[in-house]
Amino acid sequence: MSRSLGTAGRRLVCAVSALGVIVAPTVLPTMIGTATAAPSRSVVAAPAAFDLAGTDNTRTFTSYRTTDGHAINDRVIRSDNLSRITPADQRKLSDDGVTSIIDLRTQIERTLQSDRPVPGATLETYDVLGAQPPTSLVDMQSSYRAFVTDASARQAFRKTLLDIKNTAGKSEATLFHCTAGKDRTGWAAAVLLTVLGVDRATVERDYLASNTFRHANANDPLNGVNIAWLRTSFAAADQTYGSFDNYVHQGLRLTDADITGLKKALLYDPNMGWTAYTPR
């Protein structure tokens, strides 16, 4: 499945909006705790696949809704590594407005499976586990705790979210990935979705979808994911910072303006078309 609107489509909507034809004033809260509380509206949808011949676990968040009913646009993609993408894949990513690739892997992983370039896209390497012992790549409980407690990991996730915000703010798209697109990518996706206001059930379903995309078992640490691992990260955020909201603000050092920026860049009212926010 391709992204719901290409670059040209987004530009057309922006132009129409500028003429005043489409108007969608929306209240955007900067606090994110509501995403982990009992939601007033919970829509658990299947993930939207983004078909690339050279990857197994590439998808967008366009099928999801926040607890207050907003939709997520197509300016962010989660994936496994890009070492096997085809020329057609490279063209597709470029044509769909991907201008930023974020690689969350260690140096040795990048050496063994180097990303193939996407025309017009820059590559940023934010090593999540480089400060951890090599065993962290297979000791999943330790890895998922380190996602929250390790300073280098927090810096990597902070930069990832800020890059997504800045790129989407220019109506361009970011693709972020690790090796299999399930653990480091899985936590980055969980944090992003929660910050945007998606309920926990949907966040967990998105995380577990890696088992379907990779045809893997939940008890296979190399190929699959287990919900207990994701919950280890959320628990570590609560234990270390007192709440997920505090983890985002204190651990990742994201400001209310950063959170509002992410929402403005990635959310829209599905009842009003592809419309940008005007937070109050």
Rank of each mutant, 00 (worst) to 15 (best):
S136D: 09
K92V: 15
A24C: 13
V248N: 04
Y268K: 12
L28G: 00
G69Q: 06
V198D: 01
V43D: 08
R65T: 15
R41C: 13
A18K: 15
V118R: 03
L93C: 13
A257E: 13
E124S: 10
L123P: 03
V128G: 02
N226I: 00
R253L: 09
L162E: 08
P87A: 06
A190M: 10
P134T: 15
N217C: 08
V21T: 09
N217S: 12
G33E: 10
L161F: 13
F50D: 01
Q250R: 14
P29K: 04
P119C: 00
D238V: 13
A146T: 02
A48G: 01
I72E: 07
V248Q: 00
A49E: 05
T260I: 14
S152C: 13
V195Y: 07
G181D: 06
G169D: 08
E172K: 07
G120F: 05
R3F: 08
R231I: 14
D245K: 08
A257H: 11
F176S: 02
L19Q: 08
A121Q: 01
V198S: 06
L267K: 11
V13H: 05
E109W: 12
V44I: 15
R184Y: 11
G224Q: 02
V203Q: 01
S100F: 03
I259N: 02
Q132C: 14
T26A: 13
V44G: 08
